[in-house]
Design a protein around this nucleic acid. Structure first.
Length: 831
RNA sequence: GCGAAAGUGGCGGAACUGGUAGACGCGCUGGAUUUAGGAUCCAGUUCUUUACCGAGUGGGGGUUCGAGUCCCCCCUUUCGCACCA
């Protein structure tokens, strides 16, 4: 064996990790350029983290995936931007600070320090010179700037309305922060409360937010969730008339073809239409009582009563403009005040909810759609509404029309007659952003009795969050009790005025952070456009699925807005999105402190080393699937790294090979050629695995390569050394420290991450012989070994030479033969 | 209830456009080494069987020379939506 006798030091991971983390830092290996080549750049982004103090396995997994991608992109010669920062405002800091009796600012900064150190310890290739924290005045100054831009375009406005109110956190929540009727953060049942606050008019962007999903390379489920959340539907708005007052009562419907089947109308209890009806005392009292009752019910109670529709009659009637019919007007809580016009036309025969309601209160049911020409529906035997399309009946001039065509005809008629118009509705509501809390970005608005809501002049930004002793929640913003903060002069008229006391939803802060990374220290503007346009769009954005209908809609909205006002070229922030799977314990349970089943990446890496921890995480499952973490995940990978991979460096012969050199069959011995083939097959497989973020199969391929590597068969030093060096390069993005150490032991003075990612020799993927499967009638009966790239005759000759094949074909009629190049021959026989 | 995705050994998981199912690893079994344990190495490991044969990717049907992969029905799991008119 041509073994190099220089002794290789033992694998001391602690020393190796420390050494390389220090050197990488000194060399500024991860420092991103300000002037990337736009055709050769890679913006690798992982989601902003909340600095809770400990980095858990979920973070670890998220960041090592991004890290592997970033490091490989470096080796592919790209200009790489791989930044990190902190989503540092928000309730948890405020609560922790209350409990510990320290200031949220101190608590947050301490945690950032600890978390940053942990991330550095696990060797993530973040460019820390670009770190941002959303609670820093030089960051939130520009969050306020963003608010002002929206305000100037009329896209930030203040209104009084019903909002989600968390009684525990004592603050307003956005729809996106309410889960199953409960506060997403603390689980308390959310109440509806009338409150004045600021909104972003995201609904203006609803169409673009849906339509532009088309071109995004995002997981299909996220796109579907966003489409459903925005909830676009096309329909007709029809003006019914209130009988006595003659007032218009517009309603929205997606089924104009059922309009002759309307037998009653229903109004949402919260709708202000209810107040305009002129009800007599008896009905007014009943309605008031009903409204009071609904107000007390929480959202979950209301939605869980799906089958049990109730309501109350107003004593009033409305007129259907199509046929002049007078129908009863009810108040019912299955109608939502916040969608459409807050009132609906009810067609019991063709809507499940209306059907249940009509049956309960004995309201007439009239069939106006038949399943088809030959089938008629009988009201008396129906046990549910018929909701499909079909020909219209009992519908005057429209009888016989069906489906989309019917809807068109009915809609056009309304438009011609002037009592209706085609309309698009959305489930998406405007984004409520006011929070009655201390630890957030102050809203840069001054309220003046004469001038109204006035923006703080840009030169006065940031509006600094004042130091406050007592920031306990009391149901209104703690800032409201700080007169030095609140009382200011109006920037317009100079009169006495008051600041807005609320702070912004932290999702505002995280809606533009990816732009700030491109120019994080700019103190004249949020960022230089040129820099943002050079780095954007994000080439790969990695995070958990939890943000599908929150952050991932908000930041698309911001990007589009900034595009519209000339601050960004791109209309979408991230071309590719990837959701990694969760990390759970060995039994598939979510890790949590209360369950006591938390494994810390810090402990893991201290005991086994960072690279082993990373490799184990990568190897256990492909990146998008959940990982059930257990010690068994580590065993095999640890044996491989310390027992197989690392010792190969002792076989290095110091030939300083040209890694671009390709060998051909003739210049290598048979066993050498075999190993050369294996190397190139592996390079191909590893490449494909990296592209799909399937690092588990990349590791499997590398394990095979190292297993089959046999230096005693190799006399060609250049080949031997090429195998070793390329192995190191291929494993480097996954296990950076050990790879860098081996690279140095091989004699290199520059980083492995500055070397070129190995390409494979396409001529060396197929060996000199191949195994071809021989099937008879589609069943595998034998395999034959033939020279590479065989033609059909060669394989057939080999096949019919096989005794096994003969026993299956003898005395039978051969009908046809199917030959798949390099794969198989299928002989179809009869008899 | 509606919608989507997924069901492969004892376990985590491989299998590109239909083409040799179970790569790689864990675990397990046997052997070597060792005073012993551990570690390491070698061999085996889908099921049934001594072996051959046969069966086999949740169940049932279909298309095809050939199906884990495509189509239909059913079951299970996970996720999302959940009165959106």
């Amino acid at each position: 064996m041509a073994k190099n006798e220089t002794s290789v030091p033992e694998y001391d991971f602690a020393a190796i990790e420390k050494k390389w983390q220090q050197r990488w830092d000194e060399q500024r290996l991860y420092k991103a350029t300000d002037n990337p080549d736009p055709d050769n750049k890679f913006y690798m982004l992982v989601m902003f983290a909340y600095p809770s103090g400990d980095i858990h396995m979920g973070h670890f997994r998220n960041y090592i995936i991004g890290d592997a991608v970033a490091r490989r992109q470096m080796m592919l010669g790209k200009d790489v931007l791989h930044p990190f920062g902190w989503d540092a405002f928000g309730l948890p800091a405020e609560r922790a600070a209350i409990v510990r009796n320290i200031h949220p600012d101190d608590w947050t900064n301490q945690n950032i320090g600890v978390s940053r150190k942990t991330l550095q310890r696990v060797g993530i290739s973040f460019d820390w010179s670009r770190e941002v924290a959303s609670c820093a005045p030089d960051y939130y100054r520009w969050t306020q700037w963003m608010f002002i831009q929206l305000f100037r375009k009329g896209l930030a406005y203040r209104k009084k309305g019903f909002v989600n109110w968390c009684p525990e956190d004592k603050t307003v929540l956005a729809n996106e922060q309410v889960k199953d009727g409960c506060c997403e953060r603390c689980g308390t049942i959310v109440e509806q409360k009338e409150q004045i606050g600021w909104y972003f008019k995201i609904t203006d962007y609803a169409d673009r937010l849906i339509d532009d999903l088309e071109d995004l390379d995002w997981p299909a489920n996220v796109k579907t969730m966003q489409r459903e959340w925005i909830g676009r539907s096309y329909g007709l708005e029809v003006d019914f008339t209130i009988e006595e007052t003659g007032e218009k009562l517009p309603i929205f419907t997606t089924r104009p073809d059922t309009i002759y089947g309307v037998t009653f109308m229903a109004i949402a209890p919260e709708s202000d239409i209810v107040g305009k009806l002129n009800m007599d005392d008896r009905h007014a009292a009943a309605v008031a009582e009903y409204r009071r009752k609904t107000a007390m019910r929480s959202n979950i109670e209301r939605s869980s009563l799906t089958d049990d529709k109730d309501g109350v009659f107003t004593g009033k009637y409305a007129i259907n403009p199509y046929n002049g019919e007078h129908v009863q007007l009810w108040v019912a809580d299955y109608v939502l005040a916040g969608y459409g016009t807050g009132a609906v036309m009810a067609v019991p025969a063709h809507d499940t909810r209306d059907f249940a309601f009509a049956r309960r209160y004995g309201i007439p049911i009239r069939v106006v759609i038949h399943p088809d020409e030959n089938t008629t529906l009988d009201v008396n035997t129906m046990d549910d509404a018929f909701v499909e399309y079909g020909p219209m009946v009992n519908s005057d001039r429209f009888d016989g029309r069906a489906g989309k065509e019917a809807i068109d005809a009915v809609s056009t008629y309304a438009e011609e007659q002037g009592f209706g118009r085609r309309k698009v509705n959305y489930k998406l509501n405007d984004w409520s952003i006011s929070r009655q809390r201390y630890w957030g970005c102050p809203i840069p608005i001054i309220h003046c009795d004469t001038c109204g809501s006035v923006e703080v002049p840009e030169s006065d930004l940031p509006v600094v969050l004042p130091p406050v002793e007592n920031f306990k929640p009391r149901g209104r913003s703690p800032l409201a009790d700080v007169p030095e903060f609140m009382n200011v002069r109006c920037p317009k008229c100079g009169g006495e005025a008051q600041r807005d006391a609320d702070t912004m939803d932290t999702f505002v802060c995280s809606s533009w952070y990816y732009l700030r990374y491109c120019d994080p220290h700019n103190d004249r503007e949020p960022y230089e456009k040129k820099k943002v346009n050079a780095w954007l769009p994000i080439d790969l954005y990695i995070g958990g699925i939890t943000h599908a209908t929150g952050h991932l809609i908000y930041f698309r909205f911001f990007q589009k807005f900034l595009h519209d006002i000339g601050w960004a070229r791109d209309t979408e922030p991230a071309k590719v999105l990837f959701n990694h799977g969760m990390v759970m314990d060995a039994h598939g349970e979510v890790m949590s402190k209360s369950k006591g089943n938390v494994t810390s990446p810090i402990t893991l890496t201290e005991q086994r080393g960072v690279d082993i921890g990373r490799m184990a995480m990568f190897f256990t499952a492909p990146s998008e699937r959940p990982v059930l973490w257990s010690e068994d995940s580590v065993t095999g990978v640890e044996k491989f790294v310390t027992g197989k991979l690392y010792p190969t460096i002792a076989e290095y012969r110091g030939s300083d090979p040209d890694l671009k050199q390709r060998f051909n069959d003739g210049e290598l011995s048979k066993p050498e050629f075999k190993q050369y083939i294996k190397l190139n097959q592996t390079a191909k497989r590893v490449n494909e695995s990296y592209e799909r973020l399937q690092f588990n199969t990349a590791i499997a391929a590398l394990m095979e390569l190292v297993r089959d590597y046999n230096p005693s068969d190799i006399t060609n030093d250049a080949l031997n050394d090429q195998i070793i060096l390329k192995t190191i390069q291929m494993v480097a993005p996954l296990a950076p420290h050990i790879a860098e150490e081996m690279w140095q032991l091989a004699g290199f003075e520059t980083s492995v991450f500055n070397s070129s990612w190995p390409e494979f020799d396409p001529e060396a993927i197929i060996g000199d012989t191949v195994e071809v499967a021989i099937q008879v009638n589609g069943k595998l009966r034998d395999t034959v070994i033939v020279p590479a790239e065989p033609d059909q005759e060669t394989v057939e000759a080999a096949a019919f030479a096989s005794e096994k094949i003969q026993t299956y074909t003898q005395g039978k009629q051969i009908i046809k033969k199917i030959f798949v190049r390099g794969r198989l021959l299928n002989i179809v026989v009869k008899g």
